[in-house]
Amino acid sequence: MSDAIPPVVPAGRLASLPQPEFHLPGTGGLRLRPWTAYDAPALVEACHDPDIRYWNRPSLLDEAGAVARIVRWEARRRAEEGVVWAVAPAPGGRAVGLIGLGDVDLAGGSAEFLYWLLPAGRGRGAMARATDHVGRWAFEDLGLHRLRITHSVANPASCAVAVRAGYPLEGTMRAALLHADGWHDEHLHARLRTD
């Protein structure tokens, strides 16, 4: 970013904010909270779930690898590169999903959502509610200007989450992501803080 243009969000803002927890009304008690080592088995399970593997392309992990990844997520938050929440039953339940912001550009004021749910978390409308909560936090507390969601055009469930959460479709990016069965076109959804 040019030195003549001040950053949208000053460096240090994300690292200085505590990672909030959110309750997701209407989801049977699900909430968003930081990941912990306790959730490692859920991350291992997600890496083996056929739907999550197909749409999100995670690497296979054992429990030690999952714990290491959870530790890296917190390091990435402190480095202001991303922030990730567990979608989990309250109180004390193990994660059934993940939502986060990646590709964080504080100076440019943008980030991209990432999310998935294990079968135990599906069918409750949790991800649309989680996207709404994280988005409002990113706009109101963190101060970002634009948030985006991208997904394969062949993934109508992800498209429905984006639309229900208030992220309208902006367009289609051709052959934008390589999956096991070849290149997929991707939908681009986005929302501005001023929307």
Rank of each mutant, 00 (worst) to 15 (best):
M1R: 15
D3I: 10
D3A: 14
A4F: 09
A4D: 13
I5Y: 06
P6T: 13
V8F: 02
V9I: 06
A11H: 11
A11C: 14
G12Q: 11
R13F: 11
L14E: 04
A15D: 05
A15M: 06
A15G: 03
L17V: 07
L17C: 08
Q19F: 08
P25M: 05
T27L: 01
T27N: 05
T27I: 00
G28R: 05
G28Y: 00
G29S: 10
G29I: 10
R31V: 06
P34A: 15
W35Q: 10
W35E: 10
T36M: 04
A37V: 09
Y38N: 03
Y38W: 08
Y38E: 11
A42C: 07
L43D: 01
V44P: 02
E45L: 13
E45R: 14
E45T: 14
A46C: 09
C47G: 13
I52G: 03
I52D: 04
R53A: 12
Y54H: 13
Y54I: 06
W55Q: 11
W55K: 13
N56A: 08
N56I: 02
N56V: 07
R57E: 07
P58S: 01
S59G: 14
S59D: 10
L60Y: 06
L60C: 05
L61R: 15
L61V: 06
D62H: 00
D62Q: 03
E63T: 14
A64W: 07
G65K: 05
A66P: 07
A66N: 05
A66R: 03
V67E: 08
V67M: 01
V67F: 04
A68R: 14
R69Q: 15
R69V: 05
R69D: 00
I70E: 11
V71H: 15
A75D: 15
A75S: 15
R77P: 15
R77S: 14
R78C: 11
A79I: 08
A79E: 15
E81R: 15
G82D: 09
G82Y: 05
V83E: 15
A88K: 01
P89A: 06
P89L: 06
P91Q: 02
G92M: 02
G92D: 13
R94L: 12
R94G: 12
R94S: 12
A95Q: 12
V96K: 02
G97Q: 08
G97Y: 12
L98N: 11
I99L: 08
I99A: 04
G100F: 02
G100H: 00
G102V: 07
G102Y: 01
D103E: 12
V104E: 05
D105C: 08
L106H: 06
L106I: 10
G108C: 01
G109A: 06
G109R: 06
E112I: 07
F113C: 03
W116Q: 03
L118I: 01
L118G: 02
P119I: 12
A120I: 07
G121M: 10
G121D: 08
R122I: 07
R122W: 07
R122E: 08
G123K: 00
G123A: 01
G123H: 00
G125S: 05
A126M: 00
M127E: 01
A128L: 01
A130Q: 00
A130F: 02
A130S: 04
D132A: 10
D132F: 10
H133C: 13
H133N: 02
G135N: 05
G135P: 04
A138H: 08
D141K: 13
L142N: 03
G143V: 11
L144Q: 00
H145F: 07
R146W: 12
R146I: 09
